[in-house]
């Protein structure tokens, strides 16, 4: 099996206060079957053996579903492959001798913790503001009492599939969290279960998003282009429509 040599430029930053900078590394023996994160594992093993600090990055499931990984690769959140989280990216996308630049997602609302690791707790606080149906444990009626049209349920699912990685924020020139927020608003507002809280939810989540320091949406649609699970910007349209309705009704 032939292997590649890859040149890496990786953002290194000790903590939030540190100004940080790029470091160059050369990595030999990279197999095309490796995942992108496995390539970073190999780099880290090499750094540890050299007595240097490994590159910190968030990762967990490595199946593209937990949303932990969110690095920006050659200027693109999650790298070059459409509908693919960084953990599902494989080195077969690259060629021998390529240079790859790896950075954290950059946004005021996502302070850098160390290297590629950022604080995304702002997303939790947006959900906290209203991203739920207020139903206590035990209070639910029999499940089939609420029929939901198949198309409606499928559309709600398409929005609900958001993994909360923050690629949308990283890609947006305004650092807006509109796709993330819109996805949850659109998921719950599409369903009969979400109807009673539709207005309150929409207003609370939009306001929280602004409070966290995310920018507004000006329809660049960069977010949709990088979203690893293909959330549509129609969710933002739905959020705005519901917001206007809620505020002016």
């Amino acid at each position: 099996m032939s292997t590649m040599t890859i040149n890496l430029k990786v953002w290194r930053q000790k903590n939030t206060a540190d100004s940080g900078g790029f470091q160059d590394y050369k990595l030999n023996g990279v197999s095309e079957h490796m995942s992108f994160l496995e390539m970073l594992d190999v780099l880290n093993e090499q750094l540890i053996k050299e007595g240097k600090d490994p590159v910190e990055f968030d990762h967990d499931c490595r199946e593209g579903i937990c949303g932990s990984c969110n690095m920006v690769i050659n200027g693109r959140a999650h790298g070059p492959k459409r509908l693919t989280a960084a953990c599902q990216l494989h080195m077969r996308e690259y060629s021998d001798g390529d240079t790859i630049v790896i950075e954290p997602p950059r946004a005021k609302a996502f302070p850098i913790i160390r290297d590629l690791v950022v604080d995304r707790s702002a997303f939790d606080r947006i959900i906290e503001a209203g991203g739920y149906v207020s139903v206590k444990t035990g209070a639910a009626p029999e499940a089939n009492l609420i029929p939901v049209e198949q198309d409606v349920s499928n559309t709600a699912f398409d929005y609900a599939t958001c993994i909360g990685c923050g690629a949308c924020v990283a890609a947006c020139p305004n650092s807006s969290a509109s796709l993330f927020t819109g996805a949850k608003v659109a998921h719950l507002n599409s369903l009969p279960q979400g109807e009673p809280e539709r207005k309150r939810r929409t207003v609370a989540m939009v306001e929280q998003m602004e409070k966290e320091g995310f920018g507004d949406c000006s329809n660049y649609a960069e977010c949709e282009a990088v979203c690893p699970v293909g959330i549509s910007i129609s969710s933002i349209a739905k959020m705005r429509k519901d917001y206007v309705k809620a505020v002016f009704s």
Partner: peptide
């Protein structure tokens, strides 16, 4: 199942 449906979990239908 009742609880999850009430929360808006989009099960296959």
């Amino acid at each position: 199942i009742d609880q999850a449906v009430a929360q808006g979990v989009p099960f296959g239908r």
